[in-house]
């Protein structure tokens, strides 16, 4: 039972991650390889606050979201000048730089040793420590994230994001400040990703940089794409499928040593298969069919 709850909590964390990345990748059509960096920034901000200042959970969550949004702007602003492939490489670079910072600033982040003993959340005097209470909290945060994302994509604001995804030049000609929209959506998306980070840090009570690698970024992208880019429900489907599938393999009785490899091969393979035959994913509305405008 605990095991099942654990899986559901993980699914919840990945739903928040993929919903938030969907805003950038699926709705605005910009591939970012740096989502795990924001996930990590959220986790580290909350963990460091809790460990060093013993500050309340809600405040940590708030600061993590704000901090991650500001860094999101830092990635979003270059997207105005750097396009397509080169932008993807730039987000790649950002991801690796953040990983380096987490890994190398040992006195601050604990380096590869990570940060152990992160306190569990206390909200309005209620201590969240059982698996079940964590699941409830994750579900609430998932619902809030979904509500925010849904509001955005259904609004005229969201309509402009989709227009940018399909044709930036035309969107500009209609008087929309494309640059401002890109930066804003990057900030929102990064801020939301930080929520996952905070949940992960306080749930596992230990974080180290290896949870926030480039491979993790690619995994989140895979969830968005396989579930279906440009459709919020797709992100939920994707997270459920990609987190559950390897767990099912566990029951087949694979030795633990190769289970991790199989898990990764599975989603790598799925990504290829979907690109070949169903680039819009299970229920997506965007299939990355726009070609480079530059170069």
């Amino acid at each position: 039972m605990t095991y099942l709850l654990h899986i559901f909590i993980l699914i919840g964390i990945y739903i928040i991650l993929s919903l938030s990345l969907n805003l950038i990748a699926g709705y605005t059509g910009i591939l970012s390889m740096a989502h795990a960096a924001f996930y990590g920034i959220g986790a580290y901000i909350a963990a460091l606050m809790a460990l060093n200042f013993n500050s309340p959970f809600i405040l940590n969550l708030f600061l993590a979201v704000i901090g991650s949004s500001i860094l999101g702007a830092l990635v979003g602003i270059p997207s105005l000048r750097i396009k397509d492939d080169y932008f993807i490489i730039a987000t790649f670079a950002f991801q690796i730089i953040i990983f380096n910072i987490l890994n190398n600033l040992v006195s601050f982040t604990g380096g590869p040793m990570g940060l152990p003993g992160i306190p569990q959340p206390v909200i309005f005097g209620i201590k969240i420590s059982s698996h079940f209470s964590f699941l409830v909290l994750t579900a609430i945060l998932c619902a809030i994230t979904y509500f925010i994302c849904n509001k955005i994509v259904k609004s005229p604001f969201g309509r402009i994001l989709k227009a940018i995804r399909e044709d930036e030049v035309f969107t500009k000609s209609l008087g929309k400040n494309v640059s401002a929209y890109k930066v804003k959506i990057f900030m929102i998306s990064s801020g939301l990703a930080a929520i996952s980070g905070v949940m992960y840090a306080t749930y596992i009570t230990y974080i180290d940089p290896t949870s926030f690698t480039l491979m993790e970024s690619i995994f989140i992208i895979s969830i968005v794409i396989i579930g279906g880019a440009g459709n919020l429900k797709g992100s939920i489907v994707g997270a459920v499928v990609l987190v559950m599938l390897p767990e099912i393999l566990r029951f087949v009785g694979l030795p633990n040593s190769i289970a991790a490899n199989i898990r990764q091969m599975l989603y790598g393979g799925l990504l290829v298969v979907f690109m070949l035959w169903r680039p819009q994913g299970f229920i997506g509305e965007y299939s990355f069919n726009r070609n480079n405008e530059n170069g």
Partner: peptide
Amino acid sequence: FQGLRLIRQMTVLDNILLS
């Protein structure tokens, strides 16, 4: 535009609303 630009993957109504 000369090449005729529209947001092709959006509805007709949404194209106008966007404007």
